[in-house]
Design a binder for these strands. Structure first.
Lengths: 107, 107
DNA sequence: CAGTTATATAACTGTATCTTTATATAGCTG
DNA sequence: CAGCTATATAAAGATACAGTTATATAACTG
């Protein structure tokens, strides 16, 4: 599984995106992350494992707690890949034949 | 299923990302898209349906062909969501306590 | 119109994913 | 050390997904 596979499929789950949104506010432990969800702790642990595997978060050990925080690597990787699409899209936008085709398709 | 769910899970598949990469070079028909893959035509048709459902491509009718092209909507949506993470990551990077914690974690 | 081409849909199979309950581990605390 | 807290792992079930073959549709072509 390529790293992009792991990253995109990690982001495909709304619970995991919500966890990331929470971590955007700052570090949090597993219990803190689990609290807003109507879901058991093991389920959250698994989601965190997926996020960590994708390089979207890191965890450190602090006694019995495992505080999580956002990691930049995966986001950079996505950005890089999306860059290819963005570039193609803006290039297409500038091409006259594409614009005309789009207009025809709209009617 | 939120639109982000659809978009990210569409991108989680390497075949679909390859199809998008191909479309970044310009419009292509289903057969043209299927050709490089060791996979049957129905499988590709399905992938295209997923990409269309996610708003990543559009198709027009041209006789018996259905040429596909990239669509900007989904990419914009992703960019917007990733923006939240990017912002949080750069904010964290600037915070001294986070930097120190990261250094401690490294040892 | 018959045959071929381009694409879609259906039914099915195998595998992966999300969630749960039950249990294990490891640190903290009285 | 007994028991509580924070987290992880395992087994199991339900649902979703990617692929296949077989078949349908609909437009071109001679």
């Amino acid at each position: 599984m390529s790293n992009l596979d792991a990253t995109f499929s990690a982001l495909a789950d709304p619970t995991r995106r919500a966890i990331l949104a929470r971590l955007a506010l700052g570090e949090a432990t597993v219990m803190e992350l689990a609290e807003p969800f109507d879901m058991t702790q093991p389920a959250i642990s698994r989601h965190l494992k997926v996020l960590e595997g994708a390089g979207l978060i890191t965890r450190r050990v602090e006694g019995t707690k495992r505080p999580c925080r956002l990691a930049p690597a995966a986001v950079n990787e996505i950005d890089q890949w999306l860059g290819m699409l963005r570039k193609a899209l803006s290039a297409n936008y500038d091409r006259l034949d594409d614009v005309l085709a789009a207009m025809k398709a709209e009617k």
